[in-house]
Design a protein around this nucleic acid. Structure first.
Lengths: 346, 346
DNA sequence: GTAATTAATTGGATCGTTCCAAATCTGTCA
DNA sequence: TGACAGATTTGGAACGATCCAATTAATTAC
């Protein structure tokens, strides 16, 4: 095959200096003379030199400038946007990322984490797969690699976390539906045994009881957190003896599915049935009807997570901190409240 | 703050063998005695050793087992699924990927490519940002790194490509609309000066003329290839003096936007106006009405691209090959043709 | 004109692994 | 017993960059 690659030594020889000088030029050190620097840079370009980061990272001091990102479902646009937010910050900080999709498989996730360790990542942001245990992240934290867990929490793991205020968001959403006169409000979609699900259901429940309404378990209908899951959930809901007139959905994808299901059943979302989502993905705004939803700002969350990680990498301090991002209810049309008017903060 | 990592030498000392033996164990070489292997493996686990791939890659022979993936818009679920398809294949072949989002910026893309080279990727799959030139990929190909370009082509670049048959797909879709009795069929959404756009419009045009219909430029309404872009395009289309009664959309995202826009204008997609998309993203099936679309199977395409790249990496042969993936029209409800019945192949 | 100071440059040694050639250790057979 | 083959094991020399201490060159001070 091709190539015996060009190394610093080749550059040095061609430029008539020592490899040490070339190294200094590569690091933009102020120690080298301007003329020398210019000559070396010229040779570098001429020979098509490619910096070998692997070799550089061998010296223990250097940091790899790679950070790992693992999300549990890239096909969900919430996570795709989350990843894009991280990308922005990391890119401009001169890091590259290893982005991987665990597809909710802890095994796959374990392999990816192992592989990332072998490649010497300097930090990890992870939206953990369902069922992730503290032990899965322990080795990383133990070897001093900062870890930030986003969206979901890993109980017992000594890592920083950035989750949104699911409880408050759900509560505000339900309170809003109550204020619109609804009394049978369902909770639709989402997989039951997750923390996020539990928190949102708790918000739903508390908002109802505080309003003096019942919160029967029958009105909590789990399924997958996807469009298809939303369709299934609303079908079940409509077939109940006393069907609900409104619903808070686990996330926006499910909410869109609920809208689809309503239409399939001859009901118009926003008019015949109030729908509220959770996340505020981009499509929420342009959909018809525009989706009333609890805004989590996935890109912003991704950016914050990245910044948090960078801070930890730079300060070298890995004191875990837990941040709960505030959320706000964005009222649009799908709840039947009216125009693209009001914005209530939660 | 821990540090001084565990190395092969530490393992060797603890296990009472030489580092060479440890290295052989790491590579699962058949040369080492079973008892020795067991002891070494025990020590490895005990000391929490982490293999340092960077150091291993230093020997020129080794391949990095990293492949780069660059997509131009991760928030578009088409690309997210494409990435997921690649991930599957790469993962099971023991490769890890660097996934990055160029967000349609050639500058950003250039930086990412450079960074990937420095990290010694053994191959690259790229869905190039708009405006990518052959020169952007030349250095990679020149240093013998296999490159596969997907979805879009880079003119003049000597790299393999895997694109879908945009022309045939568009033609089949329009022919189907014609067979349903439509005669004013628009082409909505998408950014005008791209190859993909041009190919799909050409298919649209040829199908119309072959059917003896007119194909006025006025009915080609570009915008962004997103949901919002679809809304904008259909609004423009409906305000024409002689508005169309059907449309082929640039992609599914735009098609969903067109449906939204139709509803906002009081028309029901599938009944009052026929809509056909392109790509067949997962939501196309569950949406209401289910979207009639040209199926490209993004995950399958991702898998094929990954396989193509692996083949090139393994054979060491980088003869560029150009593959045009066949597509098929999936007839669902949004075109008004009827049930979730027929499937016509293109 | 020499010493002291500052600016540039440069040999190694080093990082953690792989790989080759050579060394050691069996056991077998004449 | 000694030669010999096969099975295991093992020192070092890479790989490509960084970094320290030391050297050389240029400048200033007295």
């Amino acid at each position: 095959m091709s190539r015996n690659r060009v190394t610093v030594v080749d550059i040095a020889r061609a430029a008539g200096v020592s490899k040490s000088t070339v190294s200094l030029v590569l690091q933009a050190s102020p120690l080298v003379n301007e003329t020398t620097r210019a000559k070396v840079n010229a040779v570098i370009r001429e020979l098509g030199y490619v910096y070998n980061r692997g070799a550089a990272n061998l010296r223990q001091s250097a940091s790899s400038r790679i950070i790992g990102i693992i999300v549990n479902d890239l096909t969900n646009s919430f996570f795709a946007e989350l990843a894009v937010g991280m990308d922005m910050v990391m890119q401009s900080a001169g890091y590259v990322q290893f982005l991987s999709n665990s597809a909710e498989s802890v095994d796959h996730q374990r392999e990816v984490v192992a592989s990332m360790r072998e490649h010497g990542i300097s930090g990890l942001i992870i939206s953990p797969a369902r069922g992730t245990e503290a032990a899965d992240l322990k080795p990383l934290a133990a070897s001093g690699i900062p870890v930030v867990s986003v969206v979901r929490n890993v109980v017992g793991a000594k890592v920083s976390s950035l989750v949104s205020d699911n409880y408050a968001g759900a509560k505000a959403a339900v309170a809003h539906l109550v204020s619109l006169g609804h009394s049978r409000i369902a909770f639709l979609g989402g997989i039951a045994n997750t923390t996020v699900f539990a928190e949102r259901v708790q918000g739903w429940r508390d908002a109802l009881t505080e309003a003096g309404l019942e919160a029967p378990d029958m009105l909590v209908i789990g399924s997958t957190a996807s469009r298809a899951g939303g369709v299934a959930a609303i079908q079940r809901a409509l077939s109940l003896p006393a069907p609900p007139t409104a619903a808070l959905c686990f996330n926006d994808a499910a909410a869109f599915g609920v809208c689809d299901g309503l239409r399939a059943a001859g009901k118009e979302p926003g008019r015949d049935f109030a729908v509220v989502g959770f996340d505020d993905v981009i499509e929420a705004e342009t959909a018809v009807p525009a989706l009333t939803t609890v805004s989590v700002d996935p890109q912003g969350m991704g950016r914050r997570a990245a910044q948090l990680l960078l801070k930890q990498i730079n300060t070298g301090k890995v004191e875990p901190e837990a941040i709960v991002g505030s959320v706000r209810l964005v009222v649009r049309q799908s709840c039947g409240a009216g125009e693209k008017a009001g914005r209530t903060s939660a």
